[in-house]
Design a protein around this nucleic acid. Structure first.
Lengths: 227, 227
DNA sequence: GTCATTGGCAACCGAGCGGTACAAAACCAG
DNA sequence: CTGGTTTTGTACCGCTCGGTTGCCAATGAC
């Protein structure tokens, strides 16, 4: 993955924790005996991710989840432990597949090109017809019932990790003289992430890919990063 | 209210419907006889609004709501009809009090001043310590369980109404030659709303007022609406 | 084949959900 | 005071929630 250079942040730690928990909870990789599983774990995890993405954490009931995944509850609990652990796996996978695209875009040679690529990749991902519209990091549960407050925190940590990656890229640009004078990398990263999150809200409400790219055009034209 | 000029949109219709329903469901304004109510309707509605704002529609259970409102369930149902109708009243009141501030800011003489005032009023409202951080229009329920899909639609309609108000202001500016050449009012309105919504997401995750205003600075510096 | 081990599935658990029935309490008209 | 009307509070309704139990089917080792 080309974005590992940025990954000194919270999310990766959390994902690691999640993976460890999972490895501890499940049986050994190749069970010598016993009946084989009738489902592929990554496949059903992808389907669970879509259900969370579409309905949010609280809106995705176990009935919705098992129906989407094509397995029943005991299989789900044997494979993933609990609804919350399933969500953590799903969110980690969402980052590895969807968010990674946008983060990888930060590898462009200039700050302007990086931000443009980031925003365009983000807009494309938010309106990809192969997935629910919008962004799991926001739809998953910006506000939750008190007992699920952890979910909101996990999602916020994921968004903060992405913003940190943008800021890191822009800090490098500042050192290289690739940013307009007086432009604060932190504030600019916040601006870029906020716009991307707003696009996610718009996409969830049905905005088209062209709509979002027109907004990106304005942000870029406006940004005047090109020197 | 100074924003009525913009209000030819969906939300006002919906609020009207809501008010009519409410008027039909409740007793006459001054019941001649009977035990008097022990609570003020607007007061408990404000508290319900905060509960929805903080926990979202699905996260705000009846227990949470009645506890926050200081009344019990039968009183809630007698006064408001159902949880969904209570939410509609709360959302309408949210628009009348919170969103109205940002919309009123569009009355500035120039497009630049209007957008700046809109974004700054929005940022201030999102970080007002007298209320939960963020925006009810997004926290209320961007994604819901299938049976509550109506809630997401109502919220999306509210956001669309605000965006339409911004677009209307910018269309006027375009006619008056107050926009840079080739700038599309619709795309610009979408950009402004997206940024504001992203700020709402950030505020919900704990961003400070100063953080948001720094992002607004970039958007404005970038926008180059000043001619 | 026999047997230990594992996964799949129907049925179930206590708890909390949104919503309601009913009777006691608080008011006004007469 | 009495009678009619409305609100209040308790206790409950059917239902779905997240999570679990126990039985049986499917497998590899021997």
């Amino acid at each position: 993955m080309t974005v590992t250079g940025f990954c000194t942040d919270q999310l990766v730690t959390r994902v690691t924790i999640c993976t460890e928990r999972y490895a501890g909870a499940m049986s050994t990789e190749t069970p010598a005996v016993g009946r084989p599983r009738a489902f592929d774990e990554e496949t059903v995890l992808d389907r669970a991710t879509e259900a969370f993405w579409r309905h949010g954490y609280e809106g995705a009931s176990l009935s919705v989840l098992t129906s989407a995944m094509g397995i029943n509850r005991p299989s789900l609990y044997a494979a993933f432990g609990s609804k919350e652990q399933l969500f953590q796996r799903a969110f980690a996978r969402y980052h590895d597949t969807q968010v990674a695209n946008a983060r990888a875009a930060l590898g462009q040679p200039t700050a302007y090109a990086s931000i443009e690529a980031f925003l365009r990749a983000s807009a494309d991902g938010l309106t990809d017809r192969d997935h629910p519209a919008g962004c799991l990091s926001i739809q998953g549960g910006l506000a939750c019932s008190p007992e699920n407050a952890r979910i909101s925190e996990i999602l916020a940590a994921g968004r903060a990790a992405t913003e940190a990656a943008v800021e890191e890229r822009l800090s490098r640009a500042a050192k290289e003289g690739d940013l307009p004078d007086g432009m604060d990398p932190g504030a600019l990263a916040r601006f870029v992430m906020a716009l991307s999150e707003g696009h996610a809200v718009h996409a969830a409400s049905g905005a088209s890919r062209e709509d979002l790219h027109a907004s990106v055009d304005i942000a870029l034209r406006a940004l005047a990063l090109r020197q």
